[in-house]
Amino acid sequence: MTALGLAILTLGAVFLALGGLGLWRMPDTYTRIQAGTKATTLGTLLSMAGAGVLEPGWALKLALIVLFLMFTNPLSSQVLARAAHRARVPQAPQTVADALAEAEGEGAQ
């Protein structure tokens, strides 16, 4: 049981590290938000699950932290992405389309 818990916990920590790597490597703010949110949400989910296996008495409280994060993490990324777009933070040169900027352009005319 301890080995299982530790394995899940370690896997979660690896995903959190990948989230950090994504934050560092991605070319623009939007892609960084993407890499940051996804990896850290699953990473947290897994590491809390691992901790729950190691200490079953904490399971409910850990579940509460996970539930809270599952709601707030995507919300804050959405707010940040919207803020970035409204503040005209530049997008990476690889970007192929921006339907939101087009829609705003139509609205202004």
Binding site: L18, G22, R25, P27, L42, A99, A101
Partner: peptide, 25 residues
């Protein structure tokens, strides 16, 4: 969520970083 993370991990660990970002409606 799991699929998303595996893909994102593959993307982040790929030395070429093959992103093709777009905002779609």
């Amino acid at each position: 969520l799991v699929v998303a993370n595996l893909r994102m991990a593959g993307l982040v660990l790929n030395p070429a970083l093959p992103v093709r970002p777009a905002i779609v409606r």
